[in-house]
Amino acid sequence: MIVVPSGTLAYMTAESDETDRAVASDSRLGSRAPAFVQRSRPLHAVWRAGIFLVGLAVIGGGVILLPLPGPGWLIIFGGMAIWGTEFVWAQKVLRWTRRKVTEAARAAADPRVRRRNLVIGTLVVAALIGLAVWYVCSFGFTVPWRAG
């Protein structure tokens, strides 16, 4: 939310950094707290602290899940989305991330990139198979260390 010189409230749109008074409620930057919470400064501060702690707990769980099997990155972005309901910087990070993921998906769909990735993947798999065949031919199926 931004207070413009005329004293009225305006919202920044998610598509640009310009203020606009007539935007959809889902594309504005800033707090999405209920109106009664936004009217009271102390209540809004408590609301923001609660959102911060909940988002921090979710992100912490995602960080713990990164080395473990599980959707760690998905949970981290979920925590950022929780923060994005209240904090402009988190909304901007999510917007930037969404833009970069879209660009990467578009680039990966390019036939030349797909062909290059297929060739590189095929060469890597062929090299690994060649190393496995060389090892089996040289040493047999025994492992080079003592088990047990």
Rank of each mutant, 00 (worst) to 15 (best):
Val88Ile: 15
Ala147Leu: 15
Pro42Gln: 01
Gly140Lys: 07
Gly30Lys: 08
Ala81Ile: 12
Thr8Ser: 14
Gly30Met: 05
Ser27Asn: 10
Arg116Val: 03
Phe36Lys: 02
Arg41Cys: 02
Leu94Ile: 12
Ala33Val: 10
Leu131Gln: 07
Gly78His: 07
Ala108Gly: 02
Leu74Lys: 07
Arg146His: 14
Arg114Thr: 01
Ala109Glu: 11
Trp96Gly: 12
Leu68Trp: 15
Gln91Arg: 01
Glu103Lys: 14
Arg21Pro: 13
Thr85Phe: 09
Phe87Trp: 13
Leu29Trp: 07
Gly50Arg: 00
Arg112Ile: 09
Ala45Gln: 14
Pro111Cys: 03
Trp83Gln: 06
Met12Gln: 15
Ala45Val: 06
Gly84Pro: 04
Gln38Ile: 07
Lys92Glu: 12
Leu66Arg: 08
Gly148Pro: 01
Arg28Ser: 06
Arg48Gly: 03
Arg106Met: 04
Leu53Ile: 07
Met80Cys: 12
Val133Leu: 11
Arg41Ala: 12
Val63Gly: 01
Arg114Gly: 11
Asp17Thr: 08
Pro71Ser: 04
Trp73Lys: 04
Gln38Arg: 15
Ser138Tyr: 01
Leu9Ile: 11
Arg39Thr: 11
Ala14Tyr: 00
Val58Phe: 01
Thr122Cys: 13
Leu66Glu: 00
Arg115Gly: 00
Phe77Gly: 00
Val46Glu: 00
Leu29Gln: 15
Ile75Leu: 13
Ser27Asp: 13
Val23Glu: 05
Asn117Tyr: 00
Val58Cys: 02
Phe36Asn: 08
Gly72His: 06
Ser25Gln: 05
Pro69Glu: 11
Ile82Gln: 02
Leu56Cys: 06
Val63Ser: 05
Ala49Asp: 00
Phe77His: 03
Leu131Cys: 14
Arg39Pro: 01
Trp73Asp: 02
Ile51Asp: 00
Arg106Leu: 06
Leu66His: 04
Asp110Leu: 06
Arg39Gln: 14
Ser16Ala: 12
Phe52Tyr: 03
Phe77Met: 08
Trp83Arg: 04
Ala24Trp: 09
Trp96Thr: 13
Asp17Ser: 10
Trp134Arg: 13
Tyr11Gly: 05
Val143Phe: 14
Trp47Thr: 05
Arg32Ser: 10
Gly30Trp: 04
Ala147Thr: 09
Thr13His: 15
Glu18Gly: 10
Phe87Asp: 03
Val46Leu: 14
Ala45Lys: 08
Ala132Gly: 08
Phe139Asn: 14
Val119Met: 09
Trp96Lys: 14
Val93Ser: 09
Ala49Lys: 04
Arg114Val: 05
Thr19Phe: 08
Gly121Tyr: 04
Trp83Ser: 04
Gly70Tyr: 03
Gly60Gln: 01
Pro71Glu: 06
Tyr11Thr: 11
Ser40Phe: 14
